[in-house]
Design a protein around this nucleic acid. Structure first.
Length: 334
DNA sequence: AAACTTGCCAACCGCTCCACT
DNA sequence: TAGTGGAGCGGTTGGCAAGTT
């Protein structure tokens, strides 16, 4: 199956058509006698989800907890089954957060979006989570989008960002990972005894819906938010950097822009969205306080100085959407 | 029945790490 | 200390089979 051997021209024995690396991979991933070839058991499935939530896409580490499974097995199973499964449950498989919360965070970060990219740049999993509802297929794009925003308004939570607690958490060191594995494995054992499908505390302190039938529901975490700085919004320090500074954008990119490596996020740091700039750590607490703020149609806070600008943009956007509803089609209607 | 789509999964790619010289 | 090669890793590809139109 798969591609022809990568090295059928160089350094391969005639007839085998495999280089040493190919042979090793085939042995470790397929031929090894201790490998299981049957489908994944529910317990294995559950453990994969838990470990992925804890340490991200460290497939080799995850596979070590599953005797007879290879990292390739686990990775494939995740990509083909589990990711979709989580998406259908309204959970972002990357962050293990409810999509509603992701959208809320995204709105706060982006506040400034280009229309076509606002949702379009969200991953396809999120699209899947929203689209399966048959009735949504028949909604005009703008109405459908408005429904999402209405949903956001009703489920709006403070973005769950442990972000600025400590920059030293920017990546989990090995010890932390091992501790996470141990924790998760122990928890898995407990859960197996209880026969609970998934215990919520391992989905970012409660972000996992308690019911498997919920989709992008209002069961966003509340427990996890208790660990947050109160009423913090990404927009508060992103917008000030992005719009209030007089520095050229290039310098912003270099010095202040908060960026997140996808690798950092997936490698066990999904709970720790880390600003790269140490200076963010020094932002006074009161700057983050947006208590009592209201949210506009797109979830942007209207309590900061920068929001008038944002609102103007969003108002203009709304006009554009009404005028050119097709602008929203691409992200959701392939 | 043919064309097309989708799901599965073995295998490839490119990168990093590490032991060895 | 620098260079080299093998091992290991995560992400991605593409052939095949089954399902759908």
């Amino acid at each position: 199956m798969g591609r022809p051997p990568c090295c059928d021209k160089l350094n391969v024995k005639r007839g085998l058509r495999r280089c040493g690396k190919s042979c090793r991979l085939r042995w470790t991933n397929y031929l090894r006698p201790d490998l299981k070839h049957e489908s994944f058991a529910p317990q294995e499935e559950e453990l994969i989800i838990r470990l992925h939530a804890a340490i991200g896409s460290r497939w080799s580490i995850i596979a070590q907890q599953l005797p007879g499974r290879t990292d390739n097995d686990v990775k494939n199973y995740w990509n083909t089954k589990l990711r979709k499964k989580l998406s259908e449950m309204g959970i972002d498989p990357v962050t293990h957060k409810p999509f509603s919360q992701i959208l809320a965070d995204y709105g706060n970060i982006g506040g400034l979006p280009k229309s076509g990219n606002r949702i379009g740049s969200l991953n396809r999993d999120m699209k899947n989570a929203f689209m399966p509802k048959a009735e949504q297929h028949h909604l005009p794009p703008f109405q459908f989008f408005s429904n999402i925003n209405s949903h956001l308004k009703t489920t709006m939570v403070s973005p769950k960002v442990e972000t600025i607690q400590d920059n030293s958490n920017s990546s989990m060191d090995l010890l932390t990972q091992l501790q996470a594995i141990k924790l998760v494995t122990e928890a898995s054992n407990c859960a197996n005894n209880n026969h609970d499908a998934v215990s919520p505390q391992f989905y970012n302190e409660g972000s996992f819906p308690s019911s498997s039938s919920s989709s992008s529901s209002s069961t966003c975490s509340t427990a996890g938010q208790e660990k947050l700085p109160p009423n913090f919004s990404w927009q508060d320090f992103l917008l000030e950097d992005a719009f209030l500074s007089t520095d050229p954008p290039e310098q912003e990119q270099d010095n202040n822009t908060v960026e997140f490596s996808s690798k950092e996020i997936t490698q066990g740091t999904e709970n720790y969205m880390i600003p790269q700039n140490q200076n963010h750590k020094e932002i006074p607490a009161q700057r983050m306080d947006i208590g009592g703020s209201s949210y506009n149609e797109f979830g942007a806070s209207s309590s900061t100085n920068s929001t008038s600008f944002v609102e103007a943009m969003l108002d203009r956007e709304n006009e554009m959407f009404l005028e050119f509803p097709n602008l929203l089609e691409e992200p959701f209607y392939n």
